[in-house]
């Protein structure tokens, strides 16, 4: 429906159809109720207009009626609430195995980096039919990642990650807007989302020259920054073993338990002493200001790639070997 209607946004993701369905339902429902109310008003206004020989009839009210028009709209509202919440729930729950795109927003541009290592500015290439998860952070004010054709939007905050995901269904080029007012060129903070057929996408990926996968960059950083001196996979380091950490609950010194998600990792690197896993000493130095947002992304991507069963899966073995060597510079 509405595919060729000029005043309707393109529909290019799996959630777009769902949002449209609820929207159209609301249009019909509210349109009908509105029409009914307006019709009543017009009919009453004409029928009971003030004229000689006609008197107003004095009516106090009616509890039955009041009850009706409290309960019936209330029930309708509840249905809308549930429907809306259902869609939101799906929009907020990224499916397993989505491809991550790390995003750094700043006044006034969008910087993307794929897991495979490609970097893009104000343009994002994604294949049709793959779940894509945006992991986003801002370097300054709040921005908002908005793709009308996908019906998704998510604010991008400084100092933490927020996420959004989509599953593109139709090749094409779509608008990317910054939807949160962020200063002078807010309206210029726009870009294109290029949705491609998988084959084309593969071609695009390999066309950009050889780039290091993000996790591998992270692994390199991990040894360059000296992380690997304390965090060793052989359990001998002064810091906790990071293999298999991602996604697991961590018991902290102060008794809280936190899930080791991207935000947790990010916080641990920036403010290590705020969250101390049980049994460790607060000796890790802070890396705030020493690593850029892009480098943080790489580190996080690397730590995420350290799966329990095959710890060296993501990176090439040569890089993995490098992490065993003493770091070139001592950080603290």
């Amino acid at each position: 429906m509405f595919e060729h209607f000029p005043f309707w946004p393109a529909r290019a993701s799996t959630s777009a159809g769902q949002v449209d369905a609820l929207f159209i339902f609301l249009l019909l429902l509210c349109g009908l109720v509105c029409l009914a109310i307006f019709a009543l008003i017009i009919v009453f206004a004409l029928r009971y207009r003030r004229r000689a020989g006609h008197q107003a009839e004095h009516i106090e009210g009616s509890n039955a009626l009041e009850l009706t028009w409290t309960v019936v709209p209330g029930c309708i509202f509840l249905c809308i609430f549930v429907w809306g919440a259902y869609i939101y729930f799906q929009e907020r729950t990224p499916p397993e195995g989505a491809a991550d795109v790390y995003t750094v927003a700043k006044q006034w541009m969008w910087k993307f980096q794929h897991e495979e290592g490609q970097r893009e500015i104000n343009e994002l290439h994604v294949p049709v039919g793959r779940d894509v998860r945006m992991i986003m952070t801002s370097q300054d004010a709040i921005h908002s990642f908005f793709v009308p054709a996908f019906r998704i939007k998510q604010d991008v905050l400084p100092g933490r990650y927020t996420t959004a995901w989509f599953h593109a269904t139709k090749p094409g080029t779509y608008h990317l807007f910054c939807a949160e007012y962020c200063g002078t060129m807010h309206s210029g903070m726009i870009g294109d989302i290029v949705v491609m057929e998988p084959a084309q996408y593969q071609a695009w990926l390999s066309g950009g020259g050889s780039t290091l996968p993000l996790a591998a960059t992270g692994e390199k950083l991990f040894s360059e920054l000296g992380c690997s001196t304390c965090h060793r996979s052989d359990m001998q380091g002064r810091g906790p073993n990071l293999v298999g950490l991602f996604g697991k609950p961590v018991l902290l010194e102060d008794g809280r338990t936190m899930i080791a998600d991207e935000n947790y990792l990010r916080e641990c690197i920036q403010n290590p002493t705020l969250r101390i896993p049980k049994g460790y000493k607060p000796i890790m130095p802070t890396f705030q200001g020493l690593v850029s947002d892009e480098q943080l992304n790489a580190l996080v991507a690397y730590i995420k790639s350290l799966k329990q069963s095959q710890p060296k899966q993501a990176a090439g073995s040569s890089v993995a070997a490098a992490s065993q060597q003493p770091p070139a510079t001592q950080v603290h």
């Binding site: 403010n271 002493t273 705020l274 607060p282 802070t286 705030q288």
Partner: peptide, 10 residues
């Protein structure tokens, strides 16, 4: 602002 311990920002 001067503070020498951990987490000066917080």
């Amino acid at each position: 602002f001067r503070f020498s311990g951990p987490n000066p920002a917080q």
